[in-house]
Amino acid sequence: MGTALLYGLGTAIPLVIGAAIGLRTTLPKPLLASLMAFGAGTMIAAVSNELFEPAFLQAGAFIAGVALFLGAAVYVVANRLLERRAGGTSAVGWALMLGTVLDGVPENTALGVSLSSGGGVVLLVAIAAGNVPEAIGGSALLHRQRNVATGRAFALWVLTGVVLVVVTVAGHVLSDHLGPTPISAVQAFAGGATIAVLADSLMPEAYREGGWWVGIATAAGFLVAFLLG
């Protein structure tokens, strides 16, 4: 459990740091886009190496494939409902924060589960790299567009980080009571949700803000995560 706690903190601390940066300063859009693209690249490697591949090898194509599509579908539907309730650009900050929870729950659950098989390093790096730009953008919009006080906005992001730590530990504890096939299903489900996050949110936003350069940053993130794996 101690290892799961440390890994959970490894995803939450970058989130809190990103929130602090977003509340205190405004980063250039190309830099923020590059961070988002780098995080997307690490996620691509993590989904392949630490989520879907082990699930495919253990549970087979059918179970892993169904769980993958189910994870993508759940995220897409939930994200669509969130967008409808957001009420336009004035609620983008809230949407980004809630979106971090929405995609962080399956990712951190999979991180906790992966620790039981000796994995998790690549996934940890990928989640941490993706959390920083999400928190920077979300906290800045929450503070400036919704006029949420700095202290309250920071507290909300700290709470989000706590949720991710709890989910990681819970995923690790849960893995002790699950067989190999259910664990594989959880990993593939998280992989599908992560792919949907990349396609629907992270990569389009990075390209919109950063232009052609984000392709290089994405490749750099993939290479770093692949080498770590």
Rank of each mutant, 00 (worst) to 15 (best):
M1K: 13
A4H: 12
L6S: 14
L9H: 06
L9R: 09
L9C: 12
T11L: 11
T11A: 11
P14Q: 02
L15F: 07
V16I: 15
A20I: 10
G22M: 06
T26Y: 07
T26L: 08
P30D: 04
S34L: 02
L35V: 00
M36W: 03
F38I: 11
A40M: 05
T42Q: 03
M43L: 14
I44M: 13
A46Y: 13
A46R: 11
V47Q: 12
V47M: 11
N49Q: 14
E50F: 06
E53V: 08
A55H: 05
L57F: 01
Q58A: 13
G60K: 03
A61Q: 09
G65K: 02
A73G: 07
V76L: 09
V77S: 04
A78Q: 06
R80A: 09
L82H: 10
L82N: 10
R85L: 15
R85E: 15
A86N: 10
G88D: 13
T89Y: 11
T89H: 10
S90W: 13
V92Y: 15
W94N: 08
W94L: 12
L96R: 12
G99T: 07
T100W: 00
T100M: 15
V101T: 13
D103G: 07
D103Y: 03
G104L: 01
A110C: 08
A110E: 08
A110W: 12
L111E: 11
G112L: 12
L115Q: 14
S116A: 13
G118H: 09
L124A: 05
V125Q: 08
A126G: 11
A126P: 08
A126D: 07
I127Q: 08
A128H: 09
A129K: 01
N131K: 05
V132M: 09
P133C: 06
G137S: 08
G137Y: 07
G138T: 04
S139H: 06
S139W: 01
S139R: 07
L141H: 06
L142E: 04
L142Y: 00
R144K: 15
R144H: 10
V148G: 04
A149R: 15
L156P: 00
L156N: 02
L156R: 05
W157R: 10
V158R: 13
T160G: 14
V162F: 13
V163R: 10
L164H: 05
V166Q: 01
T168K: 12
A170K: 02
A170S: 06
H172V: 09
V173E: 14
S175R: 05
S175E: 06
S175P: 01
D176L: 14
S184R: 00
Q187R: 05
A188V: 08
A190N: 05
A190M: 04
I195A: 10
L198I: 12
A199G: 02
S201P: 00
L202G: 02
M203Q: 06
E205H: 05
E205R: 10
A206C: 06
A206W: 07
R208H: 14
W213L: 11
V214L: 04
A219V: 15
G221A: 08
G221Y: 00
G221K: 00
F222S: 04
L223H: 01
V224T: 05
V224P: 03
L228A: 03
L228H: 00
